[in-house]
């Protein structure tokens, strides 16, 4: 378990960020956090996370843009991204997948399902 690569959680909502961080940690995962798209890209570059959980509705730089950037960056292209969306709408899901996300989870998050998605996608 040592030197496990972290999960990067990108979430501007404090309560959710705190809640998800704790739940992910309880599930045995290392978690680092970012509060907007810019921070997320910076951390993706520097911390090489195993996976990114990205809220799409973010200040400064939103999740869509951050995803787009990440997918165009050769160094970040392979980091799996799970979009966290607030909309149970097809358009949102399709957009998330089109923006290069590998999967999506709709808020309020079904945590066991999210964990399963993380386990499936995260890089070793």
């Amino acid at each position: 378990m040592t030197e496990q690569r972290p999960i990067l959680l990108v979430e501007d909502n404090e309560l959710n960020r705190e809640m998800l961080t704790r739940r992910l940690m309880r599930a045995g995962l290392r978690v680092i956090v970012a509060v907007n798209g810019e921070e997320a890209l910076a951390l993706m570059t520097s911390a090489h996370p195993a996976l990114v959980l990205m809220d799409m509705n973010l200040p400064v730089m939103d999740g869509w843009t951050a995803c787009d950037h990440a997918r165009k960056d050769a160094a970040l292209r392979d980091i799996p991204i799970i979009a966290l969306t607030a909309h149970a709408m097809d358009a949102d899901r399709r957009n998330a997948l089109a923006a290069g996300c590998d999967d999506y989870a709709t808020k309020p998050i079904d945590f066991p399902e999210l964990l399963a998605k993380i386990e499936r996608l995260k890089r070793p």
């Binding site: 909502n13 309560l15 959710n16 809640m19 998800l20 704790r22 739940r23 309880r26 509705n57 607030a86 909309h87 808020k107 309020p108 998050i109 945590f111």
Partner: peptide, 18 residues
Amino acid sequence: NHHDQMNALAALRGYAEM
């Protein structure tokens, strides 16, 4: 507003489950 509502619901659910 919808996004914020969902965030609030997400936090409620997460804390309730924890």
